[in-house]
């Protein structure tokens, strides 16, 4: 079965040093499903989200592989066409609501701009739609809020607005890049619930980037565990929490702090496990041939 988002053999590296950042990543996300991308900092989970949305930093270059969005290979179309495709079919829920809204623009235009400029809606229709989605994320007095500037709102409110903005154009895919990390613990729960509800109601495919396995268990259907830019395990949430297949996955799961036993100390991922993963990656790097051809 082919998903709405298909990533096949995606490899990327740092342009200057040639350091590999993604190693033949395969990810399949059917329409309406939720996939978690988990891993430590620097494992490449955000990098995959950025690659899907076409906003990789200039220093990162894709060496090979394809990213298919609704069957269209983003690597094979012109940059302008790629932007239009992504703008129409995908959206981002960013990590930090405090920096993701433009401080010198009012809230309203920051929601309606994509609808008007990229999708060609009329201003009136876009405004109606913005009011609709703001109500859907439980923003009180949406008319008034649309006239405010970001600094006049709290972090939780701003994240709601960003979520509303992401859903406004009814995208088929949303990339949520650690959407609760920057928020208070009390707000985190509400936001998580909100994203989950909206995703289910709109039937949006959701790529959920997080380092929090607790979040994964609540929101996702499937997940990919990443280490050093490589998918070490691709499984369903039930199977993962019941019996993780890969040693690194089990160690990661064991390292998750539990509220049920506050006295237990935090367990780091054991050194032997990391050595095993590193050896696996070294082996697959040695066997890897860019573009299927011989190296050198």
């Amino acid at each position: 079965m082919s998903g709405f988002l298909e990533i096949r053999g995606l490899s990327a590296r740092l342009a200057g040093t040639g350091q590999r950042l993604l190693r033949s990543v395969d990810i399949s996300l059917p329409a309406g499903c939720v996939r978690g991308l988990v891993g430590e900092s620097g494992a490449g989970k955000s990098m995959i989200g950025k690659a899907v949305l076409g906003v990789l930093p200039k220093a990162v270059e894709i060496i090979e592989g394809e990213i298919l969005l609704d069957g269209q290979d983003l690597q094979k179309v012109s940059p302008a066409e790629r932007r239009r495709l992504i703008g129409a079919k995908a959206a981002l829920i960013p990590q930090d609501p405090l920096t993701a809204l433009n401080p010198s623009r009012r809230i309203g235009p920051q929601i309606t701009d994509r609808l008007v400029d990229i999708l060609g809606w009329t201003k009136a229709r876009a405004t109606t739609r913005a009011l609709e989605v703001l109500a859907e994320v439980s923003i009180p007095e949406p008319e008034r809020i649309m006239r405010l500037y970001p600094h006049e709102l709290s972090g939780g409110m701003r994240q709601r607005i960003l979520i509303a903005s992401a859903f406004a154009a009814e995208p088929k895919l949303i990339v949520a890049d650690e959407p609760t990390t920057a928020l208070d613990v009390t707000v985190q729960k509400q936001i998580l619930k909100l994203i989950s509800e909206l995703q289910a109601r709109h039937g949006t495919a959701l790529l959920f980037v997080t380092h929090d396995l607790g979040v994964v268990s609540k929101v996702c259907d499937t997940l990919s565990v990443l280490y050093a830019g490589k998918v070490v395990e691709d499984t369903t949430v039930e199977r993962f929490f019941a019996a993780p297949q890969h040693g690194y996955s089990s160690a990661l799961l064991a390292a998750t702090p539990r509220h049920t036993d506050p006295s237990s100390s935090l367990k780091p991922v054991p050194h032997e496990v990391l050595e095993t993963v590193a050896a696996e990656i070294a082996a697959s790097d040695a066997a890897w041939r860019p573009n299927g051809g011989a190296r050198g």
Binding site: G54, A80, R83, I86, A91, A100, N102, P103, D113, I118
Partner: peptide, 21 residues
């Protein structure tokens, strides 16, 4: 900055991001 990156994901061109964001 984040809001410029967000604008790019919405489909705006680099020139438009520079001028309006």
């Amino acid at each position: 900055l984040d809001y410029s990156v967000l604008a790019r994901t919405k489909g705006y061109s680099e020139t438009k991001v520079i001028l309006s964001e």
